[in-house]
Amino acid sequence: MLVIATSDKGGTGRSVTSCNVAYRRALQGSDVCYLDFDFGSPTSGAIFSIDPVSRGTEGGGLHSYLQGKIAEPQRIDVWRQTDRETLRSRPPGAGRLVLLPGDQGGGEFSMTKDILQRCTKLFVRLLEEFDLCVVDLSAGRSYAAELVLAATAQQELRGVPHRWLVFHRWTRQHVIAASGLVYGRRGLIEAGAERGHDSQVLADSIRFVRTAVVNPDSEELAGLRPTQVVWLLDCNKDLQELARQHQLGRTMVLATIPLDPVLQMREQLISDRDVWASQIANAATVAAFDQLARRIADDAAWDEL
């Protein structure tokens, strides 16, 4: 299955969440690969704490592959290559976790027929070996999004499930922007239909992920003044209404990721150890990642929404 992560605006925590979801899914026993399609800024290596590729690889990454300079893009086994000792070595029962980084110094490039063909080939190639391929796009209407929309509409990928996760922060500006990216002019659905997708099928394969959400009832906010809490609750209600108007209502939401200081300070994989032993991350965050990882591939979760 292909899962494509996108957002309209930057700073939604899209990459760090999708990396964590990939990690969780691997822990749950699936073979997972993560493709860094953020071509303008290929830095997912940093989230997986793989220092040599923190700004992309020098060994032939996705940029080189898609432009036809190499036969296959470099693959990095995260379990083996990560610098974080607590993550190294694959836990029993866990699946493979592989990163396909972009090129160091790589930039955006426009889509050609050849690039589209190579992208399709790559997806077919990875589907042979992986249960889940997470494709992390850059923010907004990008060439990468166009490329993946076109590739998933190709004959070769018709029968393969692909699901879109649109990330947005829980703010007015982000809600409106995310809605625009999906439903707006030259948005995912319109652009997808032009490239051969069935609009309804495509719309059914899109869900939203709210990130950095402040829960006004949470313990962390216990120190707030009652007026602040009332104000937060009002805002939240307004946002719910706004989201509903923009077709981002609760039924369209696959997961809500709470605000977590660890993710704010440093974008990284959050291990169970970070929660239980060193207690630097919140259990609620890990629970949200874990749940998102399960729901991504759970047909029932998508049907019932």
Binding site: D31, R96, E128, E129, F130, L157, G159
Partner: peptide
């Protein structure tokens, strides 16, 4: 081919 293999395997 329908590209829906019942399981995944490394080459």
């Amino acid at each position: 081919l329908d590209r829906r293999s019942p399981f995944k395997a490394a080459r």
